[in-house]
Amino acid sequence: MNVNAICTALAQLREQAPLVVNITNYVVMNNSANALLAIGASPIMAHSREEMAEMMAFAGALVINIGTLDRTWIERMTFAVEQANEAGKPVVLDPVGCGATSLRTNTARQLAALAKHLIVRGNASEIIALAGQTSQGKGVDSQDPSEAALEAAKQLVEQYQAQVVISGATDYVVSNEGTFALNNGHPMMTQVTGTGCSLSAITGAFAAIGETSGLAAAAVMGVVGEIAAEQTKGPGSLQVALLDALYNLDADTLTQRLKLSQLT
């Protein structure tokens, strides 16, 4: 995929305004919903088992974020993935804090194994832990550089027939079609909770219109993060500026700013 294809996917997303079902943590529900609205998608934060089969029949994608995890959430997430499978819809898994506790690690692996059309979006430590390797995470924060997760990502691609997005100073997108590196974004993005979660939600929006590699979402989020950081002085205003940049992003800006390279 090149920048022209990414711009085309963005235009299609805004034209189709796909519905994205999110089972996400309490901390970032508002962030994720607003990011989806700003990019042009339609979010719904649906957690009820009673409506999930009906919801997934007409939604475009399912985003699962394990940030605030307990047994009730796990049962809801499992059922939602089963319904997404039944409807043939893509599942984006954000394995928040995978590697921090056995509950998070085991749940992330179980959900990954269950999903038939899987995209994993996480930081390097989460990706490494999901693959069963030793990571350096601290809670939900990564202590591993993104490039350290490349081999783990390739393992997940093979193990789960997944697409994998590794977030970090350099973002990597790994699939059977190759490995891409994106060098946009800004360090201030790590000082705002939910930035990665917003990327996962946007990954779901692109997946809903058929762009299931994760590359377009990572490209968009990196560019808008860069733009937002140039316009703000700190993480508080960065949150608002990110939404504005998502809303105002156009093909010319994306083409001029995107730093994309294919490694393999």
Rank of each mutant, 00 (worst) to 15 (best):
T170D: 14
G139R: 10
T24M: 09
Q133D: 13
S142R: 07
N65F: 07
N22G: 11
A251G: 04
A229L: 06
T193K: 00
A245C: 12
H47N: 10
R76G: 02
I44T: 15
A228D: 05
G139F: 04
I227K: 12
N176E: 13
S135K: 01
A201W: 02
F58I: 14
A108E: 05
L36S: 05
T105I: 05
T170R: 09
V120Y: 00
D252N: 14
V164D: 14
I64N: 12
D70M: 00
L254A: 05
A149V: 01
V81I: 15
M56C: 09
G88E: 02
C98Y: 02
I166W: 14
Q136F: 06
L156C: 03
V173S: 09
V92Q: 05
A152D: 13
S237Q: 07
V220D: 11
V27S: 11
V192I: 07
L242V: 10
Q12C: 08
L263E: 04
G168D: 12
K259I: 08
A112K: 02
N248D: 11
T203D: 04
T212A: 03
V240A: 13
L254F: 03
E126L: 08
V91P: 01
T72D: 04
V223F: 03
A148E: 09
A149W: 00
L246S: 06
V165H: 02
L238G: 06
L93H: 01
T264N: 11
N85E: 00
I227D: 03
S32R: 05
Q239T: 14
C7G: 08
R109W: 02
V63C: 13
V20K: 00
A162M: 03
L118C: 08
E86S: 12
A229R: 01
G99A: 13
T101V: 01
K89Q: 07
F58K: 11
M189K: 12
G122Y: 05
E54Q: 12
M55N: 09
A17N: 15
N248W: 11
E15I: 05
T78E: 11
A229E: 04
A216I: 08
A131I: 07
G97N: 06
Y247S: 12
Q155R: 13
A5R: 10
A11N: 10
S175I: 11
G40S: 10
V91D: 00
A59E: 04
V220F: 11
A41D: 00
Q143N: 14
E226M: 04
L246C: 10
V63G: 02
G214R: 06
M77N: 04
Y247L: 06
A201F: 01
M189N: 04
E158V: 06
C7N: 15
K89R: 14
T264H: 08
K154I: 02
Q159I: 03
D171N: 14
K138V: 13
Q12E: 14
T264R: 11
A113G: 15
A113T: 07
A241C: 14
K233A: 14
V21R: 05
N183H: 14
K154N: 13
G99P: 12
S102T: 15
V92F: 09
I64K: 08
F180Q: 10
Y160A: 00
V21S: 06
W73K: 13
G132E: 07
L69W: 09
K89L: 07
A113K: 11
Q161F: 03
T179V: 15
S146K: 12
E126H: 01
Q231E: 15
A59W: 03
G88C: 01
T232C: 15
L243F: 02
L10M: 15
D141F: 11
Q136K: 15
